Computed example of a mutant assay.
Amino acid sequence: MSMKRSLAAAIALTLSSSVMAEDPMKIGFVYVGPIGDHGWSYQHDLGRKAVEAHFGDQVQTTYVENVAEGADAERTIRMLAQAGNDVIFTTSFGFMNPTIRVAEQFPDITFMHATGYKQADNVGTYLSKTYEGRYVTGVAAGLVTESNVLGYIASFPIPEVIRDINAVYLGAKSVNPDIEIKVVWANTWFDPAKEADAANAMMDQGADVVIQHTDSPAPLMSALRRGNWGVGQASDMREFGKEAHLLSVANNWGPYYVEQVQKVMDDSWVPEDHWGGIDEDMIQIIGLSDRLSEEQSAAVNQVIEAIGAGELHPFTGPLKDQAGELKVADGVTMTEQELAGMNWFVEGVGATLPQ
Rank of each mutant, 00 (worst) to 15 (best):
A12T: 14
A12L: 15
A12E: 10
L13K: 07
L13I: 11
L13V: 11
L13A: 11
T14I: 11
S16I: 15
S16V: 13
S16Q: 11
S16T: 14
S16A: 13
S16C: 13
S17Q: 07
S17R: 04
S17I: 10
S18T: 15
S18N: 15
V19Y: 00
V19K: 00
V19A: 00
M20F: 08
M20R: 07
A21C: 13
A21Y: 14
A21W: 14
A21M: 15
A21I: 12
E22H: 14
E22A: 13
E22R: 13
D23P: 09
D23N: 15
D23L: 15
P24L: 02
P24Y: 10
P24I: 02
P24S: 01
M25G: 01
M25Q: 05
M25V: 02
K26L: 10
K26Q: 12
I27A: 08
G28A: 15
V30H: 02
V30Y: 02
V30F: 01
Y31D: 09
Y31H: 11
Y31L: 08
Y31A: 06
Y31N: 08
V32Q: 02
G33W: 03
G33L: 03
P34S: 06
P34V: 03
P34Q: 03
P34W: 01
I35K: 02
I35A: 07
I35F: 02
G36L: 04
G36N: 04
D37A: 00
D37W: 00
D37H: 00
D37I: 00
H38P: 10
H38R: 07
G39W: 03
G39E: 04
W40D: 04
W40S: 07
W40R: 08
W40Y: 14
W40M: 10
S41C: 11
S41H: 03
Y42N: 08
Y42L: 10
Q43W: 02
H44P: 12
H44E: 05
D45E: 10
D45Y: 07
L46T: 06
L46V: 11
G47C: 07
G47E: 06
G47L: 05
R48A: 03
K49S: 09
K49N: 10
K49T: 07
A50G: 10
A50Q: 09
A50N: 07
A50V: 12
